[in-house]
């Protein structure tokens, strides 16, 4: 008796899960990625003759938690019209009964891959500010992302920054749409958060569990999210994730305290990271715009709210900010002294 190899099994599974796009205006092109709920494909919208990303559920049927979750994700995305949030084009059910939605096909790189080509800290902070813009917009519309991590940020070919994967989004206020808020699947059980993830997967896999419970990605999840304290999550939980993301942008790791790269970092930046990733939500920034403002102030050479500077640090910052001007005045005074010496010879 011969058994199928793992490769053959994989191919059979891939073949079985290929969505049936008959009756739709889409033509399947390629498989892009697999997520917790389903698979994302590249497809062509034959009416508009453009590429789209098609996210399709694994399981057929429009009822059930997973289908509700996917429809809800599409509706959340549709309501969040912002240049930093990937736009959704269509939602529906395929001939094989699986729920799908299509969104803009983003030809770019994930932040964790892209960031290797960006050496300058200010450039990295400018990318971070654009992520903050998108998240602040979502918060203003009453939506928490709950899974902010480098793998969920895409950088497009023209430098556009897009926050992706709103599958774990929580609607704080039913502003986005009535249908979306009704379908909020807080009680969905998809996996076991207590199971240790395989080596190397810990920071990549989103852990999604049922009521009372964990949703997010280890390293980027706030302590209250890790405890499964779903009812008390608010914007400050995403601020924790943004702080971890900022830590990643600065040191390559979400936990900035454990990184050896912190020695080279400015104390103000460390303080911003520390404040946003404080264990208690009350100790964090109250909202994303305030966090972004602190980062902007750092970029502008101003004092940040998160760090009380010593006189020496103030002087160093003042010198850095006005370096050229100070050197110009010093050169002028030196020239004045030289003229005096020359005159008295």
């Amino acid at each position: 008796m011969r058994f199928l190899s793992n490769g053959a099994l994989e191919r059979l599974r891939d073949g079985a899960e290929v969505p049936d796009l008959a009756g739709t205006r889409y033509r399947l092109l390629d498989r892009i990625a697999r997520g917790g709920m389903g698979v994302v494909y590249a497809a062509e919208d034959e009416n508009l003759q453009r590429r789209v990303a098609l996210k399709v559920l694994d399981i057929p049927g429009t009822e059930g938690d997973l289908a509700n979750r996917l429809i809800r994700e599409a509706r959340v995305l549709a309501a969040l019209e912002h240049p930093g949030i990937v736009p959704v084009h269509d939602v529906g059910t395929l001939a094989d009964g699986r729920v799908f939605y299509t969104m803009k096909f983003v030809e770019g790189r994930r932040l964790d891959q892209y960031i290797e080509s960006v050496a300058s800290v200010p450039d990295r902070l400018r990318i971070f500010l654009r992520i903050c813009d998108a998240v602040a917009f979502a918060h203003a519309r009453g939506v928490l992302h709950r899974d902010l991590k480098p793998a969920n940020i895409m950088i497009g070919p023209f430098g556009e920054v897009l926050v992706m994967d709103w599958g774990l989004a929580k609607i704080l206020r039913p502003q986005v749409s009535d249908g979306a808020s009704k379908a909020d699947p807080e009680a969905t059980f998809i996996g076991n958060p207590k199971q240790p993830a395989a080596a190397g997967e810990a920071t990549e896999l989103s852990v999604v569990t049922g009521h009372g419970t964990v949703m997010g990605t280890p390293g980027y999840m706030s302590p209250e999210q890790t405890r499964g304290d779903v009812e008390h999550l608010d914007a400050r939980s995403d601020i924790y994730s943004l702080g971890a993301l900022l830590g990643f942008l600065l040191t390559g790791r979400p936990e900035i305290a454990s990184s050896s790269a912190t020695r080279r970092l400015d104390k103000s930046l460390l303080a911003i990271c520390a404040k946003s990733t404080a264990a208690a939500p009350a100790d964090r920034y109250p909202n994303v715009p305030e966090m972004a403002l602190d980062v902007s102030r750092y970029l502008d050479g101003l004092a940040v709210d998160a760090h009380r500077e010593s006189v020496f640090e103030k002087a160093v910052r003042f010198y850095r900010r006005y370096r050229f001007f100070i050197l110009l005045i010093a050169a002028y005074l030196a020239m004045r002294v030289l003229i005096l010496l020359f005159m008295h010879r």
Partner: peptide
Amino acid sequence: FEIILPGSIVGMIVGYATQRY
């Protein structure tokens, strides 16, 4: 020399500072 050189440099510094700051 003693008046024109420093005076010109003061003008330069002021020109830079107004543009930059």
